[in-house]
């Protein structure tokens, strides 16, 4: 069966559009607020939503998402409660949902049980930034069986061999990290991003979405020239406690920029 994520990308491709993929941290500042934010994101035209799972040691994240994770952990949010939260969300929305989680919570939960429970709850894909495909054989197999897309990361420093490996292991889309760095860093886009993405696309037909460091509509517009999707995380996470109208205005400006 084609996944919700793949269906979304092909639908967009037919219309000549690019995917707008916002990220928020589940439970930051509260689970109730996360529910409200998801409605705002959908209303602003989010194509796919990434839900962060809080972890004590978020190695790939900058200060903004680190703080959001701390806040969520203090709320007692865990991988199991995020899965339950998704099950609840599925009563009201069909938007494709991706969990971004570090590996240890999945390992502790049990890989097979995780894939089964996440799939039953309505999770469409996972991103595990500290798990390279080389070490992900079991998790990939369980996710394939459960119908969950596994999304792996590529970086500007990735070699030819790595591009092939990631392309082979990824379903739904490939996450191209725009910079060598962590989430929320300043984007210093060089001309090479276009050629990097073009090169990845020579290796596979999987869509490529770009994230890390994208905060302004201008940056989103530039990136969407090359990529199939644009991921915005820290810049949204910084605003979650602002008034809804303000957040919506910002989201709509991003949505418009991703073309």
């Amino acid at each position: 069966m084609t996944s919700r994520i793949t269906r979304k990308f092909s639908e967009l491709r037919k219309k000549g559009q690019k995917a707008f993929i916002p990220y928020i941290m589940t439970g930051h500042p509260t689970l109730q607020r996360t529910g409200e934010l998801i409605r705002l994101l959908e209303a602003a035209g989010a194509d796919i939503i990434e839900l962060g799972v809080p972890f004590s040691d978020p190695l790939a994240d900058g200060p903004t998402i680190q703080k959001a994770a701390q806040a969520a952990l203090q709320q007692g949010v865990t991988l199991s409660s995020v899965i339950a939260f998704v099950a609840d969300l599925r009563k009201t929305t069909q938007v494709p949902l991706i969990l971004m989680t570090y590996y240890n919570p999945i390992f502790k939960y049990g890989e097979e049980r995780f894939a089964r429970d996440a799939s039953a709850a309505g999770v469409d894909g996972i991103i595990v930034p500290d798990l390279p495909p080389d070490e992900a054989g079991n998790l990939i197999a369980f996710c394939r069986k459960a119908g969950i897309d596994t999304i792996f990361l590529l970086a500007p420093t990735s070699t030819e061999e790595r591009i092939k490996k990631v392309a082979q292991a990824s379903r739904g889309f490939i996450y191209y990290v725009s910079i060598t760095g962590i989430t929320g860093a300043n984007l210093s886009m060089d001309a090479s991003i276009g050629s990097h993405i073009a090169h990845i696309k020579e290796n596979c037909s999987t869509p490529v979405a770009v994230g890390f460091g994208i905060s302004s509509p201008d940056e989103a517009a530039t990136v969407s020239q090359f990529a199939d999707g644009v991921i915005v995380g820290s810049a949204i996470v910084r605003q979650v406690e602002n008034p809804d109208e303000e957040i919506s205005r910002y989201l709509l400006s991003l949505r418009k920029a991703v073309q």
């Binding site: 004590s56 040691d57 865990t78 991988l79 240890n104 919570p105 390992f107 939960y109």
Partner: peptide, 19 residues
């Protein structure tokens, strides 16, 4: 047993895999 900072080993962690 857990995985932290690219290493699988004994780890002081809670039931949810937080360190």
């Amino acid at each position: 047993i857990g995985v932290l900072q690219g290493t699988k080993s004994y780890l002081l962690q809670d039931d949810d895999g937080n360190v």
